[in-house]
């Protein structure tokens, strides 16, 4: 049961840290002090009107941010904070995480669809087109990471890294997995849902508390993804001297910062070019990653 507060503490800290990192990376300093800037921004959004578009799909309009946030929490539930310390220590943890990735595509699409407006709708469709191959890519990479552990449980994958972290054993894995992280948290070079060319895409019509909810859900998914990446590739809770949860938090924070930096410093290709890159270059690379892991796992 101690894992449940840990999940929410990690989420809250991750959302705070990534909001700060985002602000810091953009080079904007606020006179009131950077540390409280995310809180001020949240207070401002809470005091603003939440505009409703004309005839939105009311149910999905409200549910999509909630679904997005719930998927982040559900994904984080399989991440162990220490041996045997996870909310849901499933034997098939990777499968549950994969389901969360897939359903994220649905949540983002519904967000774009429900606004009943053109730019959000294009954002939703475009995200599905790019999100699908990006998700396939992560499946191969995660299966490759599960091979040396001979288990689909995230805990077993962490334990299999006692001698060597997967980031070294499978060098292609983490970079490919990070691409998916950028996609499902709608960020930088993989942000085909909420991009500036669509004036905010699926979030183009949202304001006030709704926009705050969507922003929090995005950062929560980023945090959940970073924790999963830290567990599968950076040895999760493993580490000397400090307790397991602290190591996991530190590694998650490191990945959060890397993702924030990548998100702000890599250009986004037009969708057809990214589509070609995903299917023709990155997916074959993920096969190669799987082959490397397979050959290495041979007795």
């Amino acid at each position: 049961m101690t894992a449940i507060p840990l999940v929410f503490a990690l989420l809250a800290a991750g959302i705070w840290l990534s909001a700060l990192a985002e602000r810091f990376a953009s080079g904007r300093r606020f006179p009131s002090g950077t540390v409280f800037a995310p809180l001020l921004q949240a207070a401002r959004l809470l005091s603003q009107q939440s505009v409703r578009t004309e005839h939105p799909d009311g149910l999905n309009w409200v549910l999509s941010p909630i679904a997005y946030l719930t998927l982040a929490v559900a994904g984080l539930s399989v991440v162990p904070f220490a041996p045997e310390l996870a909310v849901a220590p499933l034997d098939t943890g990777i499968v549950l995480w994969g389901a969360c990735e897939a359903l994220t595509i649905v949540a983002v699409f519904l967000h774009g669809w429900s606004a009943n407006s053109m730019l959000p709708l294009i954002g939703g469709y475009r995200f599905v087109a790019i999100g699908l191959p990006a998700m396939l890519l992560s499946m191969f990479v995660l299966i490759a990471a599960a091979l040396p552990a001979q288990s689909l449980s995230v805990g077993a994958i962490v334990e299999s890294q006692r001698s060597l972290w997967n980031v070294v054993r499978q060098p292609l894995g983490l970079p490919l997995f990070l691409l998916l992280g950028l996609a499902i948290s709608l960020r930088g070079p993989m942000d085909y849902g909420d991009a500036a060319d669509l004036s905010g895409g699926t979030a183009a019509e949202v304001s006030g508390p709704h926009r705050l909810a969507w922003g929090i859900a995005r950062l929560a998914m980023l945090t959940a993804f970073a924790a999963m990446g830290a567990s599968v590739f950076l040895g999760g809770y493993l580490g000397p001297w400090l307790p397991g949860p602290v190591w996991l938090a530190l590694k998650t924070a490191a990945l959060l910062l890397v993702l924030t930096w990548l998100g702000r410093n890599l250009a986004r290709m037009p969708a057809p070019r990214m589509m070609a890159a995903l299917w023709l270059v990155l997916l074959p690379l993920s096969f190669l990653d799987l082959v490397i892991a397979g050959v290495e796992a041979l007795p």
Binding site: R28, F30, P31, R44, V51, S199, A204, E205, R211
Partner: peptide, 13 residues
């Protein structure tokens, strides 16, 4: 500092 230009009018004050 403190002023950011938005892409969508819904995000502005």
């Amino acid at each position: 500092p403190g002023i950011s230009l938005q892409h969508s009018i819904r995000h502005a004050a």
